[in-house]
Write a protein that binds this DNA or RNA. Structure first.
Length: 466
RNA sequence: GGCGGCAUAGCCAAGUGGUAAGGCAUGGGUCUGCAACACCCUUAUCACCGGUUCAAAUCCGGUUGCCGCCUCCA
């Protein structure tokens, strides 16, 4: 069975066939770095990081590129308000981006291109579009001649005329047509700018992605991804620019993730309900946030609330407990089990089911449920009187493999306890042996205060940090 | 006005033709010195109406409700 991807272009699931066998070129639209990222920014980063991991897991060699928009109106406004320079602000929030996304288990891209680093290429690209008459200069601005591009609207599935009826009519029009969009913006006095054949200015928003995708991945890429809201106009315009330029398909598969709501409301400035990743992570285990995001299919909307976060905490804890309990058993018992084949095949079944559901448009919600199935199975196995090393190790291996694909690796418990606690543990074992339960309970309470939880099993006492 | 999405148990959420995964919560039981962890059992005619089909949460039509895009928002 092959991997199926829901392609926004066709609005259908399609078999994934990369342009070049075994290799995937992937471009994900990154944030405008004028603030800390909010959880809505974090969703695509987590989702497409998981897509990338899964494709690698399935044997593809993935080249992954994600940009930073480090020049635009929002940055210019932020600079003005803070009395800083644009590059300074960009630098600060790019650093914060890496801190936050790394905490969330997202690997760095193979390249993180920035607009400011691609001015010559952007200008060349625009010049070429002008040569091909897909663009025109107007009072220091350059616009894209939308109607000239035949396929315009194929991604958002709207005809040019449909779009026109909804388009804003610009005042003092420098455009030939209201649907035309800006490739180069003339600088206003005091704004950061670059020299160009059309005077001082800066790139429009959409051109950067066309240029940087081409620069780093070539004329045609396999997967282009981003938030649902980018479908129009951003991605539509990227297609128009790139395909007019190269005459080749720009991207073969377009993926768009759904929104996040906060307490059932859209995040917006007027409601002032933006949730910044940086703030959440002060109190929340980053894995919980990632787990939460992946517990819903990426194309569906997701709601963020305290209650749901708490569910996620409990759910993730279930995996961890199951995993650690297998580890504990492995460390304290001999190799005694029989019927290893039966259990082994059950483990394999779960792994296969995981792959099957992930193959189907990256169904992480279902994938996560397979980890829960594995947890139940391992718990059942631990209830057996005799266990084999081979099966226990297979559980561990499968837990690590599947959770790893989701970017939710099991953290190694610190095995070290200080001497005082070690001594108390010993004393408690002795006390229980002598049926001095009062003392045993006392020690258990004492440990609990130190955030160490004790669990007595037939194979001895195990502990974990609470 | 145009395009599109969603509606599944108390909450969250998979499932796109063959009589409803999983998690959280609840109730009952088992295990345990007690506890914790855990295990077992328990909870849904899938918004409504009609149609297609031997068979529909799943396909088609309609209704209601919510949401997104069409305004340089992930």
């Amino acid at each position: 069975m092959s991997i199926q991807i829901f392609n926004s272009l066709s609005r259908q699931k399609e078999e994934f066939v990369p342009l070049e066998k075994g290799k995937v070129k992937m471009y994900v639209c990154g944030p405008t770095v004028y603030n800390y990222i909010h959880i809505g920014n974090a969703r695509p980063v987590i989702v497409y990081d998981t897509v990338r991991r899964y494709l690698s897991y399935r044997g593809y060699d993935v080249t992954y590129v994600s940009n930073f928009t480090d020049v635009d109106d929002k940055l210019i406004n932020a600079a003005r308000e803070l009395g800083e320079e644009v590059p300074q602000i960009a630098e600060r929030f790019i650093k914060a981006y890496f801190d936050n996304t790394k905490a969330l288990g997202c690997a760095e891209a193979d390249a993180h291109p920035r607009v400011m680093e691609h001015m010559p290429q952007i200008i060349e690209f625009i010049e070429a579009l002008i040569d091909k008459e897909y663009a025109y200069e107007s009072q220091g601005d350059v616009y894209y001649r939308t109607r000239k591009f035949d396929g315009y609207g194929k991604l958002s599935h709207q005809s040019v005329d449909e779009l026109k009826s909804g388009a804003r009519v610009e005042m003092g029009d420098k455009k030939e047509d209201p649907l035309d969009f800006v490739l180069w913006k003339a600088a206003k006095p005091g704004e950061i700018s670059w020299d160009s054949p059309w005077g001082a200015g800066r790139p429009g928003w959409h051109i950067e992605c066309s240029v940087m995708a081409r620069e780093h991945l070539g004329d045609t890429i396999d997967i282009h991804a981003g938030g649902q809201d980018l479908t129009f106009p951003h991605h539509e315009n990227e297609i128009a620019q790139s395909e007019a330029m190269t005459g080749k398909p720009f991207a073969r598969y377009w993926m768009h993730n759904g929104y996040i709501n906060i307490d059932n409301e859209k995040m917006s400035k007027s409601l002032n309900n933006f949730v910044l990743v940086n703030d959440i992570l002060k109190e929340l285990d980053p894995q919980v946030l990632r787990f939460f995001m992946l517990s819903v299919h990426y194309r569906n909307p997701i709601n963020y609330s305290q209650e749901l976060v708490e569910d996620a905490i409990a759910g993730l804890e279930r995996w961890r407990t199951a995993y650690n309990n297998v580890k504990h058993r492995l460390s304290v018992t001999a190799d005694l089990g029989d019927q290893t084949d039966i259990w082994q095949s059950k483990v394999d079944e779960i792994k296969q089911a995981f792959i099957e559901t992930m193959d189907d448009d990256f169904n992480t919600a279902n994938g996560i449920s397979k980890l829960f199935d594995l947890s139940r199975l391992s718990n059942q196995y631990l209830a057996e009187k005799q266990t084999s090393k081979q099966v226990l190790e297979s559980f561990i291996q499968t837990f690590e493999e599947l959770a790893g694909v989701l970017g939710l690796p099991f953290q190694q418990e610190e095995e070290l306890l200080d001497a005082e606690i070690e001594a108390l543990l010993e004393e408690r074992i002795e006390a229980r042996k002598n049926r001095n339960f009062a003392r045993a309970d006392e020690i258990r309470d004492l440990m609990k205060e130190k955030n160490i939880l004790l669990e007595d099993t037939a194979q001895g006492t195990r502990w974990k940090r609470g």
